[in-house]
Design a protein around this nucleic acid. Structure first.
Length: 604
RNA sequence: GGAGGCGUGGUGUAGCUGGUCUAACAUACCUGCCUGUCACGCAGGAGAUCGCGGGUUCGAAUCCCGUCGCUUCCGCCA
């Protein structure tokens, strides 16, 4: 067998006259009876091969019997195409390879879907035959781009003195955070490892160990429900640094993003990134991961309606809640049904209702208002609302009233919905923003207690330390999220490395000394042996790649992802294991049935 | 756990206010013809009991109920 000499996509007029040998897949065959053309595809691209019975009868004869996706080795001469037969739509369109020999290395069955750029096949089918899906040029581009970005990040961090260290995959389960994936221990009956949700504690220990600057392209696991941007296993760029403050971490991250994007996409990225406080993000965008590519910001109109005749508004303000609005530009003509859809959406997000006011300008420039609650609102109020929101002729004002978090959430989501529906979001823009000063603690309704917003090792802001004992929910954390285009790319914090501060946080969380010792004893012990001040960040690498590659789901930038039910249609994972395996692992499966805690009886 | 969308030859869709639907179109596939095509073209052919189960009806791809799968979102994701 001859050896490959060139890649298909590399051929150009520069090598006209050369003898070449190519290897690849038959992307397409065009049999004109006499002449046979095939488009030969390899990783680099496509080139047309011509089989002429007068030049190479045997090769032509074989070419007539080729099928889609057969793997072939072709030898021939690169020739300039006859004038008028060039194909400007492919990069190699000015040349042909005139074949003198072809060898079929491997036949292919007819593939279940087309191996083409713009495939619109069922995702289940794509995953079932992922190796064919990944043969498609756009998927190859995605994974190659991911590789380039990985390399750029590694190069950058290396140049800044970071050391890549691998941390264990089999770790101890801690009750905080997401649900753990769990691995049974054969050598320790009844005990389980957990797969890491992130290398958090280990990277902090590496700081104690004196590595100073650590990073890892780390696989992480979380057993939670899936989304377009969430897979059960995913990859983080995990970073930790010693002797730094918040600004150091933010600047490093900005430099890393800018350098790797400039290197891979050739697009300049302006730094520093804008910063918003958590409070401001919620006020202006109704989200802690604001999409800052477009306006339509929330507007507090509490002042305008605190004395309103409309009870819902008046009571919201009086009750310490909020009345706020967004303006949907040009939507004043929305039908009753369209408005009702927005109301339904608002209710889905927790609102009691949604007030809409259509604004129009009369002949003499006077403003007219159309609203279901028109009669409850005074002319003065309406004018003030218009003044505050900046609404004008043809606009639709949407108002939500109630507890602040609900109002912000509802309007924030409506903003996103309308922004996308009205085409207000520029698709080619990269809008980075830092969200900082998150609350350190929050009250969990579900658990009925105070929990850490980020994790229990996040340092409070120095100026808020005092509140830990007096008003713990008011304490702001020295923490930061990086957001791009409304997607949370990552978050991090400066850690609490001082034992006394750490103990005060645990107290605020309601954790007793024994519990702390049991859960995090090893870390606290480490901190007693000279822990440097440190902090870091972790970026969701799949999401970064997704956004930069312009895809809508991280599945498109992961070689072998899972479906929404967390299964792999290609391999069939997860699957059952044998009786023997189970016994070795000291595990009993109860028919896949849930054990009813109310009774000792088991389904047989 | 909840809400929405989708499920029809290999693939992508149409049909879905019940009755020439004996299921249509495109493409892929098979056969034949064709020496400059490039989504090659032309002619012919094979291929689907309409995700599955039940119900309503004289009659169901079409209506109803259930169920399964994919997907988007809510909850969840320190």
């Amino acid at each position: 067998m001859q050896k490959r000499t060139h890649m298909a996509g590399e051929l150009s007029e520069g090598v006209v006259g050369s003898k070449v040998t190519l290897a690849g897949w038959v992307a397409r065959r065009r049999d004109l009876g006499g002449l046979v053309f095939i488009d030969l595809r390899d990783r680099s691209g496509i080139v047309q091969v011509v089989f002429n019975p007068r030049i190479a009868p045997e090769a032509h004869d074989r070419a007539e019997r080729l099928g889609s996706e057969d793997v072939v080795l072709v030898s021939g001469t690169v020739e300039r195409r006859p004038p008028g037969t060039e194909n400007p739509s492919i990069p190699t369109g000015t040349v042909d390879v005139v074949a003198d020999a072809i060898e079929v290395l491997s036949k292919s069955k007819t593939p279940p879907f087309y191996i083409t750029e713009d495939l619109d096949a069922d995702e289940l089918l794509r995953l079932r035959y992922r190796y064919l899906d990944l043969r498609r040029p756009d998927m190859q581009r995605n994974l190659i781009f991911r590789h380039r970005l990985t390399m750029a990040v590694r190069r950058f961090l290396d140049s800044r003195g970071f050391i890549e260290v691998e941390t264990p995959m089999f770790i101890k389960s801690t009750p905080e955070g997401a649900r753990d994936y769990v691995v049974p221990s054969r050598l320790n009956p009844g005990k389980f490892y957990a797969l890491p949700q992130s290398p958090q504690l280990f990277k902090q220990l590496l700081m104690v160990a004196g590595f100073d600057r650590y990073f890892q392209i780390a696989r992480c696991f979380r057993d939670e429900d899936l989304r377009a941007d969430r897979q059960p296993e995913f990859t983080q760029i995990d970073i930790e640094m010693s002797f730094v403050n918040r600004d150091d971490v933010l600047a490093l991250t900005e430099d890393m993003m800018a350098a790797s994007i400039e290197e891979t996409l050739g697009v300049p990225v302006a730094t520093p990134f804008p910063r918003l406080s958590y409070a401001e993000a919620m006020e202006r965008y109704g989200s802690d991961k604001p999409d800052t590519r477009f306006g339509m910001e929330l507007c507090d109109i509490g002042k305008a309606v605190e004395g309103s005749g409309f009870r819902v508004f008046r009571e919201a303000v009086a009750g310490g809640g909020k009345v706020a609005a967004i303006v949907a530009p040009g939507c004043g003509g929305f039908s009753r049904r369209e408005v009702a859809e927005l109301e339904d959406m608002a209710k889905e997000f927790g609102a009691q209702g949604l007030v809409s006011i259509a604004v129009s300008r009369g002949e003499e420039g006077g403003l007219d208002f159309r609203s279901a609650v028109r009669k409850f609102l005074s002319e003065e109020e309406l004018r003030e609302i218009v003044r505050l929101t900046g609404a004008d002729d043809g606009d639709l004002i949407l108002i939500s009233a109630g507890p602040s978090p609900v109002v912000q959430n509802v309007l924030g989501r409506l903003r996103l919905h309308l922004g996308s529906r009205l085409g207000l979001i520029p698709g080619n823009k990269m809008a980075f923003v830092w969200v900082v000063d998150f609350p350190l603690l929050e009250f969990s309704e579900e658990e009925g207690r105070i929990v850490a917003v980020h994790h229990p090792f996040t340092a409070p802001l120095d100026e808020d330390l005092y509140f830990l004992e007096t008003n713990p929910l008011a304490v702001r954390a020295n923490m930061y999220d990086l957001v791009m285009n409304g997607v949370e790319l990552g978050s991090g914090s400066i850690r609490a490395h001082r034992r006394d501060v750490q103990e005060r946080i645990f107290r605020a969380l309601g954790l007793g000394p024994e519990e702390v010792q049991e859960k995090f004893g090893f870390l606290l012990e480490a901190f007693e042996y000279g822990a440097p001040p440190h902090g870091g960040i972790a970026l969701g690498f799949d999401r970064v790649v997704m956004l930069l590659a312009g895809r809508k789901t991280i599945r498109d930038v992961i070689a072998f992802p899972k479906t929404q039910r967390a299964i792999c249609p290609m391999t069939g994972a997860p699957g059952p294991i044998s009786r023997e395996q189970l016994e070795e692992l000291h595990i009993e499966v109860v028919n896949g049935e849930r054990i009813d805690p109310a009774s000792n009886a088991r389904e047989s």
